[in-house]
Amino acid sequence: MAQIKVNDLSFSYGSSFDPIFEHVSFTIDTSWKLGFIGRNGKGKTTFLNLLLGKYEYSGNISMDWPCDYFPYKIHQEDLSKNADELMEQWKPGVESWRVMCELSELGVDAELLYRPIRTLSFGERTKVMLGVLFAGENDFLLIDEPTNHLDQEAREIVKKYLAGKKGFILVSHDRDLLDACVDHVLVLNRATIEVQTGNFSSWWENKERADAFATAENEKHMKEIGRLKSTMQQSRSWATKNENTKIGYDPIKEHDRTKNARSYIGAKTKKMESRVKVFEQRMERNIAEKEGLLQDIEQIRDLKLSPMEHYKDRLVEARDLSLRYRDADSAVFEGLSFE
């Protein structure tokens, strides 16, 4: 299949000071089963909307294939309709027999297509929408959190179904789903974007190794910077102290000092100052090498919760409490006591 090339992409929402994407470039293949990974708020759904052409951006996104997005929108007035009536609105040109074939792979009866949407469970709606999504041809599919609101059995069915497909981007926080269904990952790190071959677990293993190396390198550079700073300050102190001896001296304590000593002291000071400059250059080099080492390491902050003390030990007390709705035959509860 073809490639999607993103070149120098920048985008930010008008109400935000911080850009979502800034001068981003990468390439993905439309035949991949691509897992899209990143923290909440990093821009995963935003990028899908950029592929769909919903927002204006700077830079260039080059692709030859149309995109389709899951989940399809269901409006309030659509709840009384069935999927057979809505599928043309969801995916123009889709053929019913192809949808039925996809539904059979998902283990559900085509009868679901003719039931009102409001009567379908979340799992049934997901399966119907996935059947419509994959019933087309030559589409690159953008799948956003397909296992939300599904029970374990439905999740397993969706996972098995997607594992047999290709040509999609899958956004999910379900690690098990990503491990089973993807062969490449597109990762929104804290400061960079990367594309890797493999699934979630292989990427996570690589990330842990890279983070450990970056942390060790950062500590090494910090120690070297501290050592250079200490040596530089000592050399600068010596140079200043030495320079101050050029003017004014005690003839009793320095009775052997000659007139030529002034030029000697100046030369010695200049040599010490040169050493200081060398230390400064080495320190700047270490700082430059350290820069960016920790840019993609997630910082976990401690969360501290302090319980507030109330001025009363007992907040609520109920004794022999009963509740009955008006015109009801029986009470909701009777004789309830708690504190």
Rank of each mutant, 00 (worst) to 15 (best):
I265T: 05
S337A: 09
V182P: 02
L142R: 02
K207C: 03
V128N: 07
A154N: 15
M283R: 14
M272E: 06
I252M: 12
K91Y: 08
T27I: 14
K259I: 12
Q234V: 03
F70P: 00
V332K: 10
F200W: 14
N40I: 03
K91M: 12
S274Y: 10
K44Q: 07
I265L: 14
S104R: 15
R275W: 10
V182C: 14
C67D: 04
L9T: 03
S306K: 13
G41D: 09
S230Q: 13
S172V: 02
T46Y: 07
T240D: 10
F168C: 03
R125P: 01
L142T: 03
E56D: 13
E156S: 12
N138S: 08
G41C: 09
I247W: 12
Q152T: 03
M100K: 15
N189C: 11
K259N: 10
S10Q: 09
T192Q: 10
M283T: 04
N60S: 14
A210C: 04
L52F: 06
E208A: 09
L293Y: 06
R275G: 08
L162A: 05
K160C: 02
F47I: 01
D327V: 01
A191G: 03
N40P: 05
N40V: 02
G248N: 14
G107F: 11
G167T: 05
G198W: 03
M283Q: 14
Y264G: 02
H184S: 06
I225P: 05
K229T: 11
G292K: 08
T30V: 09
T192Y: 05
Q89L: 11
E105K: 15
R324V: 05
G93T: 07
D320G: 12
F122K: 11
L177Y: 06
C181Q: 09
I169Y: 06
L305W: 14
D250K: 09
E153F: 08
T192K: 08
R326M: 02
K5V: 13
G43K: 01
Y325E: 04
P116D: 01
F338N: 07
L130H: 06
K160P: 00
R236I: 04
F36C: 02
F338L: 14
F21T: 01
K42T: 13
K290Y: 01
G93C: 08
